[in-house]
Amino acid sequence: MIYDFYHRGDDTFYYRLLSLLEKKIPAKILEISRIRNEVYLVKTNQFWMILKGYNSYQKLKIQEAFTRALKQEGFTHTYQFYVFDDEPIIIDEMLFGMIEYISPHKDSFTYSSKGNRREALQLLEHYYTVTERLVEIYKYILPSFLLMKKLEQRLVEFRSNKSIIEHYLKMEIVEEIFEWANISFLYIQEHNEYLHSKSNVILHGDVAHHNFMRDINNKLYLIDFDLISIGPRVGDYLQFANRILPNIGWSLQQLQKMSGYSQLFKEEWFLIALMYPTDILREWNRIIRNKHLSNDFLLKQVLDLTTDQYEKRKKFYQKLRQIVDI
């Protein structure tokens, strides 16, 4: 029996998927349900698994090999791929990988608690210790971490959207956001050698809270390696800081006390890089690019992101500027 909880509008897709799975999986399929775009939960009479779509054979095989290498090197806090034979499942030019299902904890993982933030950082450090040993194997397979390119693209797109954004925000707020972004970007651009002076690991690339999950036994897992790249730890630490700062009230002192950050606070590059308002630029660019400004719910989200803690963010950036004297 097949249940589609998120109707796709193409029933034949499920019958094609079922037919292919029945040929590959040594178990009876009981149910297939869509979780989100190109991600499905498959229940059999023996086990459950996640079916995830990839747009190229290379990407799928990199994910299979990388997660297997993590386990072999002692990182057991992630999933494995099932590979029942060498031929992937292909439907509508999308290739599907079969991923081990982790029974989730009743409570979703968030960055709202100090304990969760601490445990996430500990898990990331364990991940880097392992991936540091894998860099030589993957340095010709994975892309390099290109922070400058990402920051420049966001800033250019945000600048092109300025006239639209000013319909929703006060002009002085938009100008301040530009000032923060420009100061940070120009400094990083002039000191790009900083990243090349650091030892490399395999960066996760998306350390948002939803890429950590607890299982039913409270074990914390790191998941979703679609954005892995070769670069120094600071790339993920910078992103992690941006993700948790709203949860700690933009407190410079709390961030500095966290594991891994006390040393980074001694480096001018990191402090100035923290000034780049990456979340604001990312979300305004996304809502405009996707033409979702008419969606009141999404618009409120991006407005709240920009304004709710704006004064705390402003004081945080002012303190950073005082420390580095710019």
Rank of each mutant, 00 (worst) to 15 (best):
E179N: 13
E119M: 08
L142S: 03
Q72C: 06
F212E: 00
V42Q: 04
N290M: 10
F270H: 06
D92Q: 10
E73L: 08
S199K: 15
R313I: 03
H191Q: 06
Y79N: 01
S199V: 10
D308P: 04
Q253M: 08
I326F: 12
V130K: 03
L60Y: 07
L195W: 02
L51V: 06
F297D: 14
Y3A: 11
N37E: 15
S197K: 15
F178L: 15
K319P: 03
I141E: 07
D10T: 12
N182D: 12
L51Q: 05
E268F: 08
A65H: 12
F47K: 11
P232M: 09
E64N: 08
S184A: 13
N182G: 02
V324H: 06
Q253A: 10
D279Q: 14
E38T: 09
Y82T: 04
T306G: 07
I102K: 02
S19W: 13
W284Y: 09
Y101M: 00
S262F: 10
N161Y: 12
R313G: 06
T306W: 07
F178C: 10
Q58S: 15
V234P: 09
K198Q: 13
L18V: 03
H167K: 14
R289A: 12
I230H: 01
Q254V: 05
Q309V: 10
I288S: 05
L17F: 06
W250D: 09
Y138A: 00
L255N: 02
V324N: 06
D92V: 07
E136M: 11
H77F: 05
K24N: 07
K23Q: 14
G205L: 00
E193P: 00
P246Y: 08
N247V: 06
L20Y: 04
L21Y: 07
S197H: 11
D279T: 14
Y15L: 15
H204S: 01
S163Q: 11
I89A: 04
L252H: 08
H209Y: 10
R117Y: 01
V42D: 06
S262C: 06
L95R: 12
Y140V: 07
G260V: 03
L195V: 02
S103Y: 12
S112K: 13
K257R: 11
I326S: 04
R36D: 01
G97T: 01
E166H: 08
L123S: 00
S19L: 11
N295D: 15
L21V: 09
E119G: 00
K312S: 14
R8E: 15
Y6L: 14
K150G: 05
R8M: 14
L227C: 02
E172R: 13
E179A: 11
R16N: 15
L41G: 01
T278H: 11
K291I: 05
Q322W: 15
I25T: 09
Y194S: 03
E119F: 01
L41K: 10
I89T: 07
M98K: 08
T110S: 09
E38R: 13
D308E: 13
P143H: 05
W284A: 05
K139N: 11
N182I: 12
I287H: 08
Q153T: 13
Y187H: 10
N192A: 13
K312D: 13
S251Y: 02
Y82H: 15
E22G: 12
L17V: 06
G249Y: 04
Y127G: 01
A241Q: 07
L298V: 07
K319R: 14
P246H: 09
E22M: 11
S197C: 09
T131E: 00
D304K: 13
N55Q: 11
M213E: 01
I326V: 12
N211E: 00
N290L: 15
S103W: 06
I188Y: 03
R8W: 08
